[in-house]
Amino acid sequence: TYVQALFDFDPQEDGELGFRRGDFIHVMDNSDPNWWKGACHGQTGMFPRNYVTPVN
């Protein structure tokens, strides 16, 4: 499953995934309602669910 970033996200903690608005992120785990795990630009980490939108 892929999502697209609605906003820039700069990691604040180790293990978070940084990205820029418009980036596509491969979702690896969406079991938590607020923080998902994904991959983008060769990196993996957690990111806030409300920063992304589903891609059809």
Rank of each mutant, 00 (worst) to 15 (best):
W36P: 05
G22L: 04
Q4I: 13
L17K: 00
E13I: 06
V27A: 02
E13K: 15
D14L: 08
D8N: 12
W35P: 00
T1D: 06
Q12K: 10
E13C: 05
G15R: 11
G18V: 07
Q12F: 10
R20H: 13
G45N: 00
S31G: 09
V27N: 00
F7R: 15
T1W: 06
P48C: 04
Q43D: 07
M46A: 09
Q4G: 02
D10S: 10
R21I: 09
Y51G: 03
G15T: 08
V27S: 00
Q4N: 05
D32Y: 03
F19A: 04
N30S: 14
G45K: 02
L6E: 11
V52L: 02
A5F: 02
L17I: 09
D32N: 13
S31L: 06
A5I: 02
G45Q: 02
D14I: 14
N34W: 10
F19S: 00
T53Q: 15
D10Q: 15
R49A: 14
R49C: 13
L17N: 02
V3R: 03
F7Y: 09
D8P: 04
T44K: 07
Q4Y: 06
E16G: 13
W35I: 05
D8T: 06
V55L: 09
F7K: 15
Q4D: 00
H41P: 02
P11M: 03
V52G: 03
W36C: 06
R20N: 11
V52D: 00
M28A: 08
G18E: 14
L6Y: 03
W35S: 07
R20D: 04
Q12R: 15
D32H: 07
H26V: 13
Y2E: 08
F19E: 02
R49F: 05
G22A: 04
L17G: 02
N30Q: 15
R21W: 04
E13T: 08
D14P: 14
Q12C: 15
F9R: 13
D29P: 02
W36F: 06
H26P: 01
N56H: 06
N50V: 06
G22H: 04
E13Y: 11
E16W: 11
V27K: 01
D32E: 07
G38S: 02
L17H: 00
G45S: 01
P33D: 15
G18R: 13
Q12Y: 09
N34G: 12
S31K: 07
